[in-house]
């Protein structure tokens, strides 16, 4: 699938909670408030993975959610970017010793951008989106993924 410059000017985000404590989700909502206004850059939250360009995943992926996460990822039309928000999505974080983990997110689906923090501030999430855009531009420029 060809990447176009319009993609990184109109990133539609689908938010998926794979078993997080909800802390990161609240920070994501804070990022979408008028104070930060990501719609300035065409970023919009959508309700269906079919409309999305970016999959925003929080949480350490519980056993129940692993299959759902895979299916939501498969439902998204390409080209797509996966962004992990929060430490527990990267390593398990505070849940790392739990009996009920299917592993951090990158063991289930490929991840492009990590935003560390428990929970990360909205500025960090915006930094993550900017990194995602930069990555898309690199791919466009023909560099290796």
């Amino acid at each position: 699938m060809k990447l176009t410059t319009s993609l990184n000017r109109s990133l539609w985000v689908f938010h998926f909670n794979s078993g997080s404590c909800n802390g990161c989700d609240i920070e994501i909502v804070a990022t979408l408030t008028p104070r930060y206004d990501p719609e300035r850059f065409g970023v919009k939250l959508v309700g269906s993975p079919r409309h999305a360009d970016v999959l925003l995943v929080t949480g350490p992926v519980t056993n129940q959610m692993a299959d759902r996460l895979r299916r939501v990822y498969a439902q998204m039309p390409g080209p797509k970017v996966v962004m992990v928000v929060g430490t527990c999505g990267q390593s398990g974080g505070v849940f790392s010793t739990s009996y009920n983990l299917a592993g951090p997110i990158d063991q289930i689906i490929p991840v492009d951008v990590y935003v560390p923090g428990c929970a990360p501030r909205p500025e960090a999430i915006i930094q993550g989106v900017v990194t995602a855009i930069a990555k898309l531009e690199r791919i466009e420029g023909g560099a290796k993924q």
Partner: peptide, 17 residues
């Protein structure tokens, strides 16, 4: 968003899978 944002959105959608 910029005034021409809907154009960008449609261009993106037309290029997607």
């Amino acid at each position: 968003p910029p005034l021409l944002q809907p154009f960008t959105d449609v261009r993106k959608l037309l290029a997607k899978q």
